[in-house]
C-alpha cells in the first residue's frame, strides 16, 4: 500500500461553491520526492494541506499509512514559505521546540527531568545545525536576525529533528534569491538521500521541480471556473542530466505557455 493515498478528492470553497480540486487521485510511495507543479491558484497548496490534515476534502479521502488524515500531527513535517519559525524563540529554541513539546506537556516541563533532556535536545539540535550549514553562533539569534535562506535552514532543522516519515514543503524556497535557492535545493536533495524521507514539495518553478523530484505531478485547471486535476505526471531520474532537464522543461513550458516560472505563465494550453 502506498504511504500517502489521495483518493477521488474534491475541494470547493465559498458559497456558491467554487471548485478548487476536482477528483484528484494520487499514490505516493515511501521514499519518493514528489514535486507538485502548477500555476498559482491551481490547488497545489490545498492538496498539500489535505495531506497535512489541516484541511478536509468535500469528497474523497486522504490517507497516510492507511489512516485518514484528520489533523496535523508529527507524522508529517511541514515547511511553509513563510512564518515557519516562532519569532519569540531563538534558533536553538525553535529547533528543540518539537522534541520538547512531544515529550513534555505544560506541567511536566517544570520537572527536573525536562532540564536534563533539554540539554540532550540542544546537543542534537547543534549537530543538526552544523549539518544544515548553520553556525553555532547563530544558535542564540532570533528569526528576524537571520536571512531568508538561513530561516528556511532552521525551519528544515526544526522539522527534521522530529524525524517525520513525510516532509511537506509549501513553496519553501520561493521567497529566496536564485543563488540561495539553488543552495537550498542541493541541501534538500542531500537530506532526502541521507534520510530516505518522503518529500512532497510544492513549487511553481519547473526547473526547481525537475532538479529535485523523482516524480513531477502537474496540476492545472481545465477552465478558470473548474477545479484542478492532475494534468500529467512523470518520473524524473535523479540526478537528472542537464539535457533531460532541458527537454522536460521545454515540454512543460510548451504546456504552460513558455515560462520557467509558472507564476508568470498563461493558462495551460493542454
Amino acid at each position: 500500500m502506498a504511504l500517502i493515498q489521495v483518493q477521488s478528492v474534491s475541494v470547493a470553497y465559498g458559497s456558491p461553491a467554487k471548485p478548487v480540486l476536482n477528483n484528484i487521485g494520487l499514490d505516493i510511495e515511501a521514499g519518493e520526492f514528489i514535486c507538485l507543479l502548477g500555476r498559482t491558484g491551481c490547488g497545489k497548496s490545498t492538496l498539500l494541506r489535505l495531506i497535512l490534515g489541516s484541511e478536509t476534502p468535500a469528497s474523497g479521502v486522504v490517507t497516510v499509512k492507511g489512516s485518514p488524515r484528520q489533523r496535523p500531527d508529527p507524522v508529517c513535517g511541514y515547511v511553509p514559505q513563510k512564518y515557519s519559525l516562532f519569532p519569540d524563540r531563538t534558533v536553538l529554541d525553535n529547533i528543540t521546540f518539537g522534541p520538547e513539546v512531544s515529550e513534555f506537556n505544560l506541567l511536566t516541563r517544570w520537572s527536573p527531568r525536562f532540564y536534563s533532556r533539554r540539554r540532550e535536545f540542544r546537543k542534537e539540535a547543534l549537530q543538526l545545525m552544523q549539518r544544515l550549514g548553520l553556525r553555532e553562533s547563530d544558535a542564540g539569534k532570533y528569526p528576524d536576525q537571520l536571512s531568508g535562506g538561513m530561516q528556511q535552514r532552521v525551519a528544515i532543522a526544526q522539522a527534521f529533528i522530529n524525524k517525520p516519515r513525510i516532509l511537506l514543503m509549501d513553496e519553501a524556497f520561493s521567497a529566496l534569491d536564485p543563488g540561495t535557492r539553488q543552495g537550498m535545493q542541493r541541501l534538500m536533495k542531500q537530506l532526502w538521500r541521507d534520510t530516505g524521507i518522503t518529500v512532497v514539495f510544492v513549487t511553481h518553478n519547473t526547473k526547481e521541480a525537475l532538479a529535485l523530484a523523482t516524480r513531477v505531478v502537474v496540476l492545472a485547471k481545465p477552465a478558470p471556473d473548474q477545479g484542478a486535476g492532475i494534468l500529467m505526471q512523470f518520473p524524473v531520474a535523479q540526478p537528472c542530466a542537464e539535457a533531460e532537464i532541458g527537454e522536460l522543461t521545454t515540454r512543460l513550458e510548451s504546456v504552460f505557455g513558455g515560462s520557467e516560472d509558472l507564476e508568470d505563465s498563461l493558462v495551460p494550453t493542454a
Binding site: 489533523r71 513535517g77 511541514y78 512564518y83 521546540f97 518539537g98 522530529n162
Partner: peptide, 22 residues
C-alpha cells in the same frame, strides 16, 4: 499566522501547548 499553529501541531504540540507555548 495559521502556518505557525499547523507547524506546532506537526512538531507534536497539543492544543494547550499551541495556545500557551506558541
Amino acid at each position: 499566522p495559521g502556518e505557525q499553529l499547523v507547524k506546532a501541531f506537526t512538531l507534536g504540540a497539543r492544543d494547550f501547548d499551541v495556545a500557551y507555548r506558541v
